[in-house]
Design a protein around this nucleic acid. Sequence first.
DNA 1: ACATTTTCGCTACCGCAGTTTCGCAAGTAC
DNA 2: GTACTTGCGAAACTGCGGTAGCGAAAATGT
Lengths: 188, 188
Amino acid sequence: MVPRGRPRDAGVEGRVLAAAAEELQRGGYDGLLIDRVAERAGVAKTTLYRRWASKAELVVALIAEMRSEVPFEPTDDPRRDLTGLVTAIAAGLAGTPTTLIADLAAAAAREPRVGESVRALWADRHRAVTAVVANAQEAGLVLGHVAPAVLVDQLVGPLYYRLLVTGEPLTPDYARTLVSSVLGEEKS
Amino acid sequence: MVPRGRPRDAGVEGRVLAAAAEELQRGGYDGLLIDRVAERAGVAKTTLYRRWASKAELVVALIAEMRSEVPFEPTDDPRRDLTGLVTAIAAGLAGTPTTLIADLAAAAAREPRVGESVRALWADRHRAVTAVVANAQEAGLVLGHVAPAVLVDQLVGPLYYRLLVTGEPLTPDYARTLVSSVLGEEKS
DNA sequence: ACATTTTCGCTACCGCAGTTTCGCAAGTAC
DNA sequence: GTACTTGCGAAACTGCGGTAGCGAAAATGT
């Protein structure tokens, strides 16, 4: 099944996604301008629209590619694992422009396809945290008797809350405090 | 000190803010169109810009007016108070279009003035929850020994996390579970 | 009365950004 | 080589925030 007409330039997709990634990082969803992306990729806007139906679809594809595997292997110290994970997530959020997170959340709420994409992106980390929380719970480290999913929300949710709503800083110390609140004080 | 020229139409401000509130409710920040607001208020766009310097400022004023006092008086049952508050916040969020919350968060991240305004809006509820958490802590109902501010984040943060990130529903039952996770299981 | 001052509404316009139209270039099939 | 198919870029279109300029209206002061 050989395609009939002029073949597509194979390099376009990669160049556009790379340019889009940089622009997204710089200015958030709204700050990502199709014009700039096309210019940086060295293609015309129309070429871009032939590959992706809209700006939203472009970002969907971009996020799908971002889904970097965060290889994580639990040790035998759930508290250590959990602190590491939550701290890493906090650092990741703190190191990303707030407008990007907020714009992405807004785009996710507006465009269902973006929502799917973004949720899939976070689902990976969510799964890792859930696993460790379950471990901790089996080891008897957790204070109450609550479903792991809820505890995960109480570990990660506050990070987003601070970032998007109250605007307070996300320090490593805050991450540790969150873990302590769920697991009880550290006995050392 | 009587002003010299033609006085301003006193009704304009109220009509514009009312129209803006409806439009904001319907379509979020981005869905609020200045043209539509002006039309619904029966005012020319220029008149609107004579009162507020930009769309952002208009929304700032709108949110400042929204800051409805939620009169809340703590009873002698902190668990009941807390459950009521968290459930009410969850219901409020669930009853508001997600795009509105997300757009507002994005606008807050982009425009500092909107950020101030939004944070002031949530600060009221935040204060109420903090007070009740402190009560519960004094009464010995709280499991660990963590600062009230952190516990508040762990009660409210998950609501925003579910709404904006994971997309899971905000049920009254979930709100109760959050409270139970912080206060320990209900003994009854 | 009349000049002055300020608001109002109207129309037209600018800039910007997402999206579409269209003519042409580049390739394949016969 | 000719017909057909597809990719491409330039320019135009569209919607929206924001501005400029104008004549008419509504107040104050003399």
